[in-house]
């Protein structure tokens, strides 16, 4: 340790700059310690209690109509949100393609957190319970002329693939999704054809690679190509980190043939589980 500086040897004129420089590191450390202590002491008050969740659940249950979507923000509070409101949520709702079909959305957020589903929307009702903020949103729901996913049995499969296409409940990008799963042979393309489909002004869909372990072990992407009446409308490539990737293509209203071409890109693309969901919308 450094020796004391004898008072008699020092200049008694106060040098603020020197004093500040001498104290600054210690004060910074003490401030960090105090901040840290405050964070620990305040940890409980920053989280919602069971009673606050109970209040939220009761009020949402009372006001919500069965067709309305429930979302949580940030996404990591989803399990505790489902604990309190999961009885109001179906698997189909949790595994939805997107939120466009819902006319009403209930968002339960921690502090000011917002869910991606409500981006750009204005809430018409809101209330708080502790750190939880509940907001209700109304949007014009997408009108679906044909749901390829729920009508998956109508699709005719061709091309080299493992098994047959089927409706599957899968983890895609760490999210739950109900989708049509197709596993083309490595480097090959499988085709799912829907004939004489009533289309609106666009086809909206999502595609991704299912199963974390095959995504880890097989790094090659999958590709979806959409054709309407044999004409290329869009191509979307989904890599191992792409998650649930949106695609959209304009269509002419009327009856048309729609083909989804699914390709396991590359000779090493074994067990490439390509999952997609799509809707024809007005």
């Amino acid at each position: 340790m450094a020796e004391d500086v004898p008072a008699s040897d020092t200049d008694s004129t106060l040098d603020i700059g020197r004093l500040a420089r001498g104290l600054a590191p210690a004060l910074l450390t003490v401030a960090a310690a105090v901040y840290s202590l405050m964070a620990v002491c305040g940890a409980d008050s920053a989280t919602a209690t069971n009673a606050q969740w109970g209040t939220v659940a009761a009020r949402v249950r009372e006001a919500r109509t069965p067709e309305e979507l429930i979302v949580f923000a940030p996404s990591w509070i989803d399990p505790v949100g489902r604990q309190h409101l999961g009885d109001q949520m179906s698997i189909a709702m949790a595994a939805r393609m997107d939120s466009a079909r819902y006319a009403g959305i209930w968002e339960i957020g921690l502090e000011d957190e917002r869910a991606p589903e409500t981006r750009g929307l204005k809430s018409d009702t809101s209330f708080t319970a502790g750190p939880l903020t509940v907001r209700h949103y109304v949007q014009t729901p997408a009108e679906v002329t044909y749901d390829f996913t729920s009508e998956w049995r109508a699709g005719k499969a061709s091309g080299p693939m493992q098994g047959r296409p089927n409706l599957s409940f899968e983890e895609v990008g760490f999210e739950p999704h109900q989708c049509i799963k197709v596993v083309p042979r490595p480097g090959q393309t499988a085709i799912v054809t829907f004939s004489q489909i009533p289309l609106g002004s666009k086809i909206v869909g999502f595609v991704g690679l299912a199963d974390i372990f095959t995504r880890r072990d097989v790094r090659e992407p999958g590709r979806l190509t959409l054709l309407v009446d044999g004409e290329l409308r869009t191509t979307v490539t989904s890599g191992i980190d792409s998650g649930w990737k949106r695609f959209e293509a304009p269509t002419t209203p009327g009856i048309h043939d729609v083909e989804f071409h699914l390709t396991a890109v590359g000779a090493g693309a074994r067990d490439r589980r390509i999952c997609f969901a799509a809707e024809a919308r007005k």
């Binding site: 340790m1 450094a2 500086v5 008072a7 106060l14 020197r18 004093l19 001498g22 590191p25 210690a26």
Partner: peptide, 13 residues
């Protein structure tokens, strides 16, 4: 602590 103490001794003898 040494730095703070020495600065205080100089400033507030």
């Amino acid at each position: 602590a040494d730095l703070a103490r020495n600065s205080l001794i100089v400033a507030k003898p």
